[in-house]
Amino acid sequence: MNRYSRILESLRWLLIALPLASTVPHLAGWEWPLAGVVLLTSLPMLWLPTHPDWLLGTSLVLLGISGSLLWLSHPTGLMPVIVFTTLFYAVRFGSLRTAIPVIVVVVGAFVAGWFRFDVSLRSGLLDMALVAVVVLLGLNRRSRTARLEQTQLALARAQTAAEEHARAATLAERARIARELHDVLAHSLSGLALNLQGARLMLRRDGASAEAVAQVERAQQLAVEGLSEARKAVAALREDPVPLERAIRDLLDGYRLDTSAEAELIVHGEPRAVEATTTATVLRAVQEALSNTRKHAPGSSVQVTLVFEDDEVTVTVLDHQGRKPAAAPLTGYGLRGMRERAELLGGQLSTGPEEDGWRVHLAIPA
Rank of each mutant, 00 (worst) to 15 (best):
350 S>E: 15
26 H>S: 08
52 P>Q: 08
348 Q>W: 10
182 H>M: 11
17 A>S: 03
248 I>K: 09
40 L>M: 11
91 V>P: 07
150 Q>W: 06
247 A>C: 02
345 L>K: 10
205 R>A: 10
203 L>C: 04
48 L>K: 01
3 R>N: 08
25 P>M: 03
146 A>V: 12
55 L>W: 12
185 L>R: 03
196 L>I: 01
128 M>C: 08
127 D>A: 14
129 A>N: 02
72 L>N: 00
216 V>T: 15
12 R>Q: 08
138 G>Q: 14
211 E>D: 15
276 A>K: 08
48 L>Q: 06
112 A>H: 04
191 G>W: 04
155 L>A: 14
300 S>G: 02
280 A>R: 14
192 L>E: 07
151 T>A: 12
311 D>G: 14
274 V>S: 03
146 A>K: 15
299 G>T: 10
353 P>K: 03
167 R>V: 12
117 F>G: 12
247 A>K: 04
345 L>C: 10
243 P>K: 01
237 L>Q: 07
202 M>T: 11
325 P>S: 04
111 V>N: 01
56 L>Y: 05
336 R>L: 15
208 A>G: 11
331 T>L: 15
288 E>S: 10
35 A>P: 13
296 H>N: 12
275 E>V: 07
181 L>N: 04
342 A>Y: 08
318 L>V: 15
53 D>Q: 11
263 A>W: 04
307 V>I: 13
364 I>W: 13
177 I>H: 05
330 L>H: 05
100 I>N: 02
25 P>H: 01
84 F>I: 00
86 T>F: 06
345 L>P: 02
74 H>P: 07
61 V>C: 06
61 V>F: 06
301 S>Y: 03
171 L>H: 08
164 E>G: 03
139 L>G: 11
2 N>K: 06
155 L>Y: 04
95 S>M: 06
97 R>E: 05
97 R>G: 09
195 N>P: 00
45 M>Y: 01
349 L>V: 09
363 A>I: 14
230 A>Q: 08
271 P>W: 02
83 V>I: 07
314 T>H: 14
359 R>G: 01
237 L>G: 01
57 G>W: 01
253 D>N: 10
27 L>P: 11
202 M>E: 09
224 V>E: 14
202 M>G: 06
192 L>G: 03
116 R>G: 00
348 Q>M: 14
246 R>G: 10
205 R>D: 07
192 L>R: 09
286 V>I: 04
217 E>A: 15
126 L>G: 10
302 V>W: 02
243 P>V: 07
293 T>F: 10
9 E>N: 11
34 L>R: 02
188 S>C: 04
246 R>C: 13
45 M>T: 02
178 A>T: 07
127 D>Q: 12
249 R>K: 13
11 L>R: 01
159 Q>A: 08
210 A>C: 07
159 Q>D: 06
161 A>W: 00
89 Y>Q: 02
155 L>H: 10
172 A>C: 02
4 Y>G: 03
